[in-house]
């Protein structure tokens, strides 16, 4: 995947703007935007991780919120037991998501098509119900939590530092994804999306590649969950509700499936839209629902997908 010059410039500008957000909005005395943009970047990571398997791998997982929840509960539950070391929490968030993704993926990938969608959906609901039944950790009321503690110079109590940490993770995840999809492994995953039977015929045991992609994607979403718990200082089963899965999927669609930067653009577009329109009416889904139908019917490429493509492929 090569970028066109236009897209390269847009990315560079986007990055500079993000870096400038905390000082700029502080100067304007609108620090609320630091939290909003932080939240958007977290969901951008989640959407990006979904796009790895959805847009590139063709696996329509309707269960990505599960890993968002797992990552956040790793923070909440460890903090509840007074383990606040950020590195350890991050490790558990990633590792826990990976293990659960391995189990769910191993079951779901035995199937395909409609089955796959329904089962990923059902498995997420299972985790949602487990979250609700965990009375010790707040049940359906959720669990307030402290922010993770890293070395002294990374004080997450400072909103600026948290913001830059999230931005750092976003850039890191984008870079990792970019390497990944262009690597041999990435070629196999993209090949499976287009024609799995053909991949098998030329000698790829596709199941194990798809399963690993599923695990990588889940782990990356676990990072988003880790960051989300830190941002909101609260974890709740709501993070795992299948509506979250749907929203993450919408972000991917709005931005452009099977592109690296589309999900990021989509997260911004969706959450900014929600922010603005919910200022007018709390019943905004009445408008958004039909809008989504229209979007699916008439603008499937997404925002990023509408930009001109590089000649060599789907940049």
């Amino acid at each position: 995947m090569e970028l066109t010059r236009l897209k390269g410039w847009l990315l560079a500008i986007g990055f500079v703007v993000l870096v400038a957000v905390p000082p700029a909005v502080t100067a304007m005395d609108e620090t609320f935007y630091i939290t909003l943009i932080s939240r958007i970047m977290i969901f951008a990571i989640a959407a990006l991780s979904l796009d790895l398997i959805l847009g590139f791998g063709g696996m329509i997982s309707f269960g990505h919120a599960a890993y968002l929840g797992l990552g956040s509960y790793a923070v909440g539950i460890l903090a509840f037991h007074e383990i606040t070391n950020g590195w350890l929490q991050l490790f558990v968030a990633i590792g826990g998501s990976a293990v659960v993704a391995l189990i769910i993926g191993a079951i779901c990938l035995r199937t395909s098509g409609i089955y796959f969608i329904m089962i990923t959906l059902a498995m997420t609901q299972l985790l949602f119900f487990i979250g609700i039944s965990l009375e010790t950790y707040g049940g359906d009321d959720g669990l307030p939590t402290d922010r993770s503690e890293f070395a002294a110079f990374i004080d997450l109590g400072n909103e600026w530092i948290l913001f830059y940490l999230i931005l750092g993770f976003l850039v890191l995840c984008m870079y990792i994804s970019w390497r990944l999809i262009n690597s041999r492994f990435g070629m196999v995953i993209r090949g499976c999306h287009e024609n799995e039977a053909r991949m098998q015929a030329i000698g790829f045991p596709t199941y194990r590649y798809k399963l690993l992609a599923f695990v990588i994607s889940g782990s990356m979403c676990g990072i988003a969950g880790f960051l989300l718990a830190n941002l909101t200082e609260f974890v709740t089963p709501e993070f795992m509700h299948w509506f979250r899965s749907g929203e993450i999927m919408i972000m991917v669609l709005v931005g452009g499936m099977g592109t690296l930067f589309g999900p990021v653009v989509g997260a911004f577009a969706f959450l900014m839209f929600e922010e603005i329109i919910s200022g007018f009416t709390e019943n905004w889904p009445v408008i958004f629902g039909p809008l989504l139908v229209l979007l699916v019917l008439f603008a499937k490429q997404g925002v990023w997908g509408l930009l001109p493509k590089s000649k060599a492929g789907d940049g």
Binding site: R179, L180, S183, R184, F185, G186, M187, V188, R190, G191, E194, M199, I202, G203, F204, Y209, L212, A312, G313, D314
Partner: peptide, 23 residues
Amino acid sequence: HFSARQNVALSIQARQGHSFRFW
């Protein structure tokens, strides 16, 4: 969605053993 060369390269990749190479 792959170029002609990428199509053939994919086959060669398959014959060269596993493709768990990520970078």
